[in-house]
Design a binder for these strands. Sequence first.
RNA 1: GCGUUCGUAGCUCAACUGGAUAGAGCAACGGACUUCGGAUCCGUAGGUUAUAGGUUCGAACCCUAUCGGGCGCACCA
Length: 526
Amino acid sequence: MKQRVNALLRDKFNCDVILEKPKDRSFGHFATPIAFSLAKELRKSPMAIAEEIAGSFENESMFSAVESVKGYINFRLSESFLDEYASWALSHGDEFGCSDKKGTILLEFVSANPTGPLHIGHARGAVYGDTMLRLGRHLGYDITAEYYVNDAGNQIDLLGVSLQLEGRSSLLGENVEWPEKYYRGEYLSDLAKEVAALFGEDALRDESRQKELALWAKDKILALIVEDLKAINVHFDTFVSEASLYDEWDRVMAKMNGGVYVNEGKTFIRSSDLGDDHDRVVVREDGRPTYLAGDIIYHNQKFERGYDDYINIWGADHHGYIARVKAAITFLGYDSSKLEVLLSQMVSLLKDGEPFKMSKRAGTVILMSDVVEEIGAEALRFMFASKKCDTALEFDIEELKRQDSSNPIYYIQYAHARIQTLISKSDKSMEEIMSAHLHDLSADADGLLFEALLLPEIIEDAFESRQAQKLPDYLKVLAGRLHKFYYDTRIIGTADEAKLLKLLLVVALSIKTGLSLLGIEAKDRM
RNA sequence: GCGUUCGUAGCUCAACUGGAUAGAGCAACGGACUUCGGAUCCGUAGGUUAUAGGUUCGAACCCUAUCGGGCGCACCA
């Protein structure tokens, strides 16, 4: 819709024109402040320019009115245009809002360490990433959802140690000496039991088997994580194992041509040449690679797979890490601007008004699966999708767990269910409804129709600006307009019945499509 | 200390990325048809957009300084 108007204006002015939705809908459907920016060039007052421009649209069938007000130019779309567009939308069903965007994107998100089940802090990145995935695919992009599995390095060793100690302590009743750092939690005692059953109790005491047990455990834990994600309707296409990458090490280092050097027995990357604060160690004196080493090979592998664009969703605590990875990509001979790193800010938790620290090692984590059990996957998804991801979030745990009727998800679902009820109560056939013409609409009806038809713009804007929360915001507004309209307007049994039901079908379509892009199924009844 | 990011109603967040009178939801208070679902709707109250300057037709948004919070500043991941 907006594209059509934009195209028209672009032809007229030979440049992109800013189109906005006026806050006060009585002004029209779209507005532009272009006269202000032209005023300087043309050395005329904005009002005069606006008058002139508005007058030039008189014979345009797309608009029923184009007016200039205080220098703004306001456009009102004609009913025939809106009706035609509404019919088009209804005939396209689920594909409403689809576009023909081209390009392949590799989207990496979650990538939580396989050392424990997902906690509530992981949920934000998971929901955000999956929402971007759904939006992008709806628009036509060919997107691969990828999970990077950190199955190498210290935390895997730590997992093996923790598993044995947990088993010896809780299962065999031994007094064990806990190291400074270790993992704990219910999942570990479950795994220890499995170890005893599968490998025998001796496996819990034999230090030489730590590595073996750790590798066995991380696969089990990864399976748990996949289950957790499935429960909130998040699915990945590919999993890349960090450990599997190191065979490529020599070949990748050769590609770095000059980007690395050896000093005091350690290998450094010259990241300070490319904006980082220091050069970073990639291989320690004893030959063990650092975390960065894995990421260098991984990103080389990503670029060798040849996507048009790369998006990583990282927690904000990794922001200092971006410069290093981008430097590595440049040394490898690729265009580092193709990698876009989206940071999702931390979720901080409150309990009874006091800050609550989660720690996987201390076992004080709020598991995502527990919250899902309490409030449901849909409420959790909606809650995280609603928040702009570049501001830190505060949640009170008790509030999060409360199944509240104030939850906006019910408000939106209720709007959809109300429409379905009306459709089923009406005597009109679907043919009668679909062939009705939307004309002589009240201001409220017109506003509702216009809002519902805005979905494609919202989807595109939300994806391209990487601000997923624009979709839930829109759905709240649309549902609000529907509820008000429903309250004010009698539909069944009136002369306008078929016409208004057609309008409501468009609203239902936008709600249903919008919710599905949030990974939520619209309900016909509640 | 350095970097980075944020600061909007009592709380949680918006504001079309520089545009018209800064808006919603909670929480508070007061209302709504013997009517298509009251999980709804309407109203009241709540603001010097952290503070002080600057840029211009126009600033919550851009620039500078100050104050306050988050997150980084590993040969951990």
